[in-house]
Amino acid sequence: MAKTGLIIRHVPHEGIAGYREPIEAAGFELDRIDVDDPAFGRVDLTEPDLLIMMGGPMGVYEVEEHPWITCQLRRLERRIAAGRPTLGVCFGAQMMAAAMGARVYPGPTKEVGFHPLSGIDRESPLRHLADVAVLHWHGDTFDLPDDVELLGSSEAYPHQAFRRGPNLLALQFHAEMGLDPRFDAWVDQWPSALTEVGSSPAKMRAAHSEHGPAAVAAGRLMVAEWLAGLE
């Protein structure tokens, strides 16, 4: 029987991108649902063999503007309590932290651009990202949940990745992005953040061209190794 994987997409331009290849290579048949789909509230999030939650511009704390957040968190808590394989990226990682009881809140500065992680746990799948410039695109952060391992940091944000056991992996950064044409939508949607960090649309597109392919290659190796260790 085929293994099932469900992608939760919070906005259309933030999809699974470069991570699709290693996940499908590991034998998962992927389906996707958007949070604005009327059926989303009825989906049992404990059912898929693998759950992948991608990014989005909203904050976990913006529950009045996005009522589905509360509904998703409640179902995510059950999945995490059961230890079911779950991957969260950026907003998805923040949702995992919140479902584990940690606080999610606005960070001290915007972190936007390509740069390497620091403090990588070389015994973890993140070892593939050592010295690789990956995309960061966020302004929120989270306290580290209980009973997790911190796997990587950055100068601005100490909590860039964590895992709990072999099955739960949360990634604040975007090693899936670097070859996806939807990056243009990212650049267009948040010009104020680019200005705040001293960048521009032209600079971001140039960095994407320069660093993107290597970032995606490393990200795929990371995800493949994580999937191979699932229980």
Rank of each mutant, 00 (worst) to 15 (best):
E231W: 00
P22Q: 04
K110R: 14
E196C: 00
F173A: 15
S118P: 00
G83V: 12
F183D: 08
Q172T: 06
D121H: 06
R75A: 14
K110V: 11
R20S: 06
E14L: 02
E111K: 02
E111N: 10
P181I: 11
G59A: 06
D180M: 05
H138F: 09
I33E: 10
M96F: 04
A17S: 14
H13C: 10
W186R: 00
W186L: 12
T70Q: 13
G88K: 12
M54L: 13
Q94T: 03
P57V: 03
F173K: 03
M96C: 05
F40L: 02
E64Q: 13
G5P: 01
W186H: 08
V134A: 01
T141Y: 02
D34L: 10
A202T: 14
L126Q: 03
D121N: 15
D31G: 14
R122W: 01
D34T: 11
L117F: 08
M53W: 03
L6M: 09
R84C: 10
E64A: 11
S209H: 11
R205D: 03
Y157T: 15
Y157H: 13
H208C: 02
H174Q: 04
A39P: 00
F162M: 08
V134N: 06
L221C: 12
E77H: 10
V216T: 11
D140Y: 02
R220F: 03
S192Q: 15
M58R: 06
A206D: 14
E149K: 15
A26Q: 09
K3R: 15
M96V: 11
A82N: 09
A218I: 12
G59E: 05
R122L: 15
E149V: 14
K3Y: 07
A97Y: 07
R127K: 15
S200G: 09
Q189H: 12
L126S: 07
V197M: 05
G27A: 08
V216H: 03
V187Y: 03
P125Q: 07
E196N: 09
K203F: 01
E62L: 02
L151T: 07
H66W: 11
T109W: 03
F91Q: 01
I120S: 01
A25W: 03
Y105V: 04
D37F: 01
E47Y: 03
A218F: 08
I23W: 05
R182D: 15
D143F: 00
P158M: 04
A26H: 08
V197S: 06
I23T: 10
S154L: 06
E21N: 08
T195K: 13
L45D: 10
L194D: 03
E24G: 04
D49V: 09
A39I: 08
M100G: 10
P191H: 05
A81V: 10
R20P: 03
E176A: 04
